[in-house]
Amino acid sequence: MNASPSTTKRLNDFKYLSPGSLTEAVDILNQSEKQAVIMAGGTDVLVMTKARVITPGILVSMINIPGLSDILESDQEIRIGALTVVADLLKSKQIQEKCSALAEAAREFATPHVRNMATIGGNICRSSPGGDLLPPLMAMDARLTIVGPDGERIQPIGDFITGPGLNTLDREILTGITLPHTSNQSSSAFGKITRNTSDLAKINCAVFLEKTGVDCSIIRIVLGAVADRPVRLPGVEQALEGKALTPALIESAVVRTDDHIAPITDARSTADYRRKVSRVLTSRTILKAWETLN
């Protein structure tokens, strides 16, 4: 084959399986000797396969596994199936009302074309430091349901991601995401610095906060694309918790952003820029979440 650009964009030949149940899918992951890669929406797996970043021996499509693409709400929590596409997060009334940060991130996520195919589970398992859905899910204290040969386990998303593109999955499958119940005196917001709407984030940020009386009683702040994984900002959180938030107070608190980030220079931005703008984006996003409660 000629090494023309179009041939390098072709996919390598792999074995394709589309199991009809989770058990069958887990069995394939655990019994195959070749590298088995799970494909949900395919928007990342196919692009990485074309670029030969990964060369799966077996591609395991989730397409025929039923019941993994619903958004269900109970009194206590919202449960999102791992195969829910980003466009459906954006349309969901529950997500818009109870988790606006996630709805905003879905709105800013890649292009409409990608949003129609890409899944929330895929974005989590890709575990990119800059994945747009990750800061909102971390700020909301989302828990992941993961199925393996020994059954099901639950893990907070903050513990799941262990590095750039790395996570705790070990021949397992992410099946769902649970967002805990939030009080009606809580709100969340998302912010993203990017070159244009379809680009990956230079920096992204999500804030969840709860108000008791006039004070901010709980705040969780997450920044993405500024470290080897999305990071919480406990120093900033502590400076704000228990206080009525004002722009001046937020300005003084976000100085501590620096303590928690380790940005790099890459194709999208420089470390210096990311460091400076992290404070600005954090401050804006906190203010946005706070103002929706007032």
């Binding site: 499509s61 397409i63 409409p112």
Partner: peptide, 15 residues
């Protein structure tokens, strides 16, 4: 694809 725009270069034909 079923009324929704998709980039057909990253949709496996099987889907």
């Amino acid at each position: 694809l079923d009324g929704h725009p998709v980039s057909s270069c990253i949709v496996p034909a099987i889907k």
